[in-house]
Design a protein around this nucleic acid. Structure first.
Lengths: 228, 228
DNA sequence: CGATGCTGACTGACTGTTCAGTCTAAGTAG
DNA sequence: CTACTTAGACTGAACAGTCAGTCAGCATCG
């Protein structure tokens, strides 16, 4: 057996690399074909190893897939944190978050990551352990939004509002939007999703409209909202 | 072979009943165990028949499951239409729609129907044929919301607004809320989901607050969601 | 040498699907 | 009314493919 997940400094060098390769490959394949259509043989082939090795590392197909889900959650969160670190302007940050969830494939993430969410939800619905992970992810996600808003308030960009309430509602809205975009709904494409999300944020936070927009047109056709 | 789906008056009586039994059973099991964990043997057992008979009727496991998905979509829509027919007051109707999506198991529907949504999305993401069905369902769903709002405008209950835009956004919001409720998120339980949905509707439609609430206590315990 | 990383060949269980044929009810002829 | 036919609903048993997981052993390296 390989070193479980001990990060003993010198030990599992190759092991850790292999593990990550496999997790990434598994995540990709889950996203493409779906959780239950993912075969260990596929994962093995993609990392150029034998199926036996995958079992050697993870012991069980289920462990592999579950960890792969966790892995991509973490990935998502890391990318998210990086994006937020690159600017401190409230509007830019909000736009980053929307882009992260509603625009096709930032290259940083696991490609086709949407399929992953569907499977994550599906698994979480039926398996308490996955549910716990998902909950933790959601918690972090909301905290992130809440933090961004709180920063905005602290910086005086917007007036004080209930950040928790906004975070919860907005997170839910983004989930819904991402579904439509992922499923290539012709009515709600990524551009419209972006506009819906930002329009909601503008109204809920009383955020001045984007620099591009004229000052007086706030409630205009607030939805279809040409933000451009 | 059984009569395909001819409804020739005298012919496939038993056939139709059997088919529906099987579709319902399949839908239930999909909701419980998940799409790909559904075995034809399970479906057969639940209707008290042999696995061979299920194949005899549907030809293929995939056909059965796909049709089962369609079947439950239709069911949902029918229940929805019935609910709306029972009242014409805008607020009541909106509340009905929210209840339909965000409150655990109306007995009319396929029980545990949440799991079904996840699998529907998952399948739609990867199989164009399912995607087409899902799109049609979404279209009807939005039209329904739009119709309700349009009725409200026509009846003078609210002022004129962009009904299509509201329908799209609200539908997305409801999707997001239903996910949280389905996954038993402790933060967004069905009560809070209900409040979020109705609060959004009130603001977007400029709908007077519910009769139950005293005029000044709008922020009461509306699910932590005082919107101001 | 011993530990570690790794594999090919195998197996055992599962499950969708086929098929040959049974049972029942209705029709039809004698 | 009886005997024979037919067709549709249905099934048990077998088949065939797929795959997760096992195992005995090979190679490499310190």
């Amino acid at each position: 057996m390989p070193v479980k997940s001990d990060d003993n400094g010198s030990g599992g060098e190759i092991v850790d690399r292999r593990r990550e390769q496999m997790l990434l490959a598994a995540a990709e394949i889950i996203a493409e074909r779906g959780f239950s259509e993912t075969r260990i043989a596929d994962v093995a082939r993609r990392v150029g190893a034998s199926p036996a090795l995958v079992i050697y590392y993870f012991g069980t197909k289920d462990d592999l897939l579950t960890e792969a889900l966790r892995y991509s959650e973490d990935r998502f969160y890391v990318v998210c944190a990086e994006m937020l670190a690159s600017t401190s302007a409230l509007r830019d940050r909000l736009e980053s978050l929307v882009r992260l969830t509603c625009i096709p494939d930032g290259e940083d993430q696991v490609p086709g990551a949407w399929g992953l969410w569907f499977d994550l939800w599906s698994q979480a619905f039926r398996h308490p352990l996955v549910a716990k992970d998902r909950l933790e992810l959601e918690r972090r996600w909301r905290s992130t939004i809440e933090g961004v808003v709180a920063d905005g308030i602290r910086a005086g960009e917007i007036k004080k509002i209930d950040a928790e309430d906004f975070a919860v509602t907005w997170a839910v809205l983004l989930d819904g939007l991402s579904i439509q975009v992922a499923l290539k709904d012709p009515i709600v494409d990524s551009e419209r999703a972006f506009n819906i999300a930002m329009t909601f944020a503008e109204q809920a936070l009383d955020l001045p409209p984007s620099r591009g927009a004229k000052a007086s047109t706030r409630r205009q056709r607030a939805g279809k909202s040409a933000r451009s």
